[in-house]
Lab assay of single mutants.
Amino acid sequence: MSIQHFRVALIPFFAAFCLPVFAHPETLVKVKDAEDQLGARVGYIELDLNSGKILESFRPEERFPMMSTFKVLLCGAVLSRVDAGQEQLGRRIHYSQNDLVEYSPVTEKHLTDGMTVRELCSAAITMSDNTAANLLLTTIGGPKELTAFLHNMGDHVTRLDRWEPELNEAIPNDERDTTMPAAMATTLRKLLTGELLTLASRQQLIDWMEADKVAGPLLRSALPAGWFIADKSGAGERGSRGIIAALGPDGKPSRIVVIYTTGSQATMDERNRQIAEIGASLIKHW
């Protein structure tokens, strides 16, 4: 067993022997301040990774656009098919120029040779490549099948209805392509620590998230040296922004954090800054 596999296998073990965790309302004060600064709703939840206990939450059962955070769930569904012998990570998928959609920095470079399922998941999570996500959605049967996968996990809230990039439209009061912070946090925890996926697939999923290259201005910008984070960000229309993450000190994750916002007129930089400040408060009061 590799060191990384050992780390993920012992996530519940280490967490069980940690000192009790206590909620700190100071972080919620910052979440509410972010709402004021952005002029928009902000949803927040913080779960203990081992027990699933909610440590703090704000608007945990209000719907927010998922945006690209759905790509972690998508690759979880792909990995479940791999575990069941219905898919192979090494299978190569070929596609054409007509398949390319807006923001496809990886797939646009491989029109000639195609990409493997493993490479597509890596591109979808680490670079948020939209064509990679659409190609992977095709392998599982489309958005409705991802929703069905989530329902089978016990998540009857999260739903995907459309493809990239239309799913980022974020129309107010439109339930399409949305989740709730509580539902997303619980589902992410199941994917990373539950028995739904094999140990190898859980490790692969967290490795992809740990290698995320496009979430630097968010929670990662607030992390002290030595902290662990595996995350996936999302951005959408109407001032929408979000991030889902597993993080913790001492090089291992111990909490799940989900943050979503929508309806702001603020710039992307300002949305990023507010999420980073929430992260800084979380870490300060850990």
Rank of each mutant, 00 (worst) to 15 (best):
A84K: 04
D207E: 11
V258Q: 09
V106G: 14
D231F: 04
L73N: 14
G76R: 01
A211G: 04
D99T: 13
G242E: 04
N272G: 00
A235R: 03
P60Y: 12
A215G: 05
F70Q: 05
K71T: 01
M66Q: 02
T138N: 07
H151G: 08
L219C: 10
P172L: 07
T261G: 10
A84I: 05
Q265C: 05
R255T: 05
K232G: 13
T267P: 10
G90S: 06
S51E: 09
L89K: 08
I125P: 00
R189F: 12
L188S: 11
V106C: 06
I54N: 07
L89P: 06
H285T: 02
C121W: 01
A222K: 12
R92H: 01
P105V: 13
T193Q: 04
I275T: 13
L146Q: 12
A276T: 10
T139D: 07
G216Q: 01
Q203Y: 02
T178S: 12
T107H: 04
E175Q: 13
S80A: 09
M66L: 02
M66E: 01
R273M: 01
T158K: 01
K30L: 14
H156K: 13
L120W: 01
V82I: 11
G239V: 15
D250Q: 01
A133E: 03
T69G: 05
G242L: 04
G43Q: 01
K144D: 09
E166V: 08
T193Y: 02
L49D: 07
H94D: 08
N173A: 10
E56M: 15
L120K: 00
T147H: 05
V117P: 13
A34D: 12
A246D: 04
R202G: 08
E119M: 00
G216N: 12
A124L: 10
Y95H: 05
E26C: 15
V157G: 11
H285L: 03
G39Y: 02
T69S: 07
E56V: 14
D155Q: 06
A123Y: 15
L146E: 14
G242V: 11
T69E: 06
M153W: 05
L28G: 13
E108M: 04
K213P: 09
Y44W: 06
Q97G: 10
E102F: 13
S201H: 05
R202Q: 08
R202L: 06
K284V: 12
L218S: 08
R273D: 06
A132S: 08
S51F: 01
H110E: 10
R41Y: 10
E270Q: 15
K71G: 01
A182Y: 07
E175D: 13
E62K: 00
G216W: 15
R91M: 04
Q274E: 06
L136S: 14
Y44V: 03
V42G: 06
G279T: 07
Q204W: 00
R271W: 03
S51G: 01
K252I: 09
H110G: 01
Q37E: 05
W227D: 14
G248S: 05
S221T: 11
T267E: 12
K32W: 02
I140A: 11
L192D: 10
N272T: 02
L150A: 11
V31G: 05
V117R: 01
Q204N: 02
H24C: 09
T27H: 04
V257C: 06
L192K: 08
Q274H: 12
R92S: 10
E87R: 07
E56A: 15
A148Y: 15
G142D: 08
K109S: 15
V106F: 13
L111H: 03
R63C: 13
W163P: 11
E35A: 11
L150T: 14
A266F: 14
L150D: 11
D207L: 06
L188P: 13
K232F: 01
V42D: 03
A40W: 11
S233M: 13
P253D: 03
V72A: 11
L55Y: 13
M268N: 04
N130W: 15
I278K: 09
I259T: 09
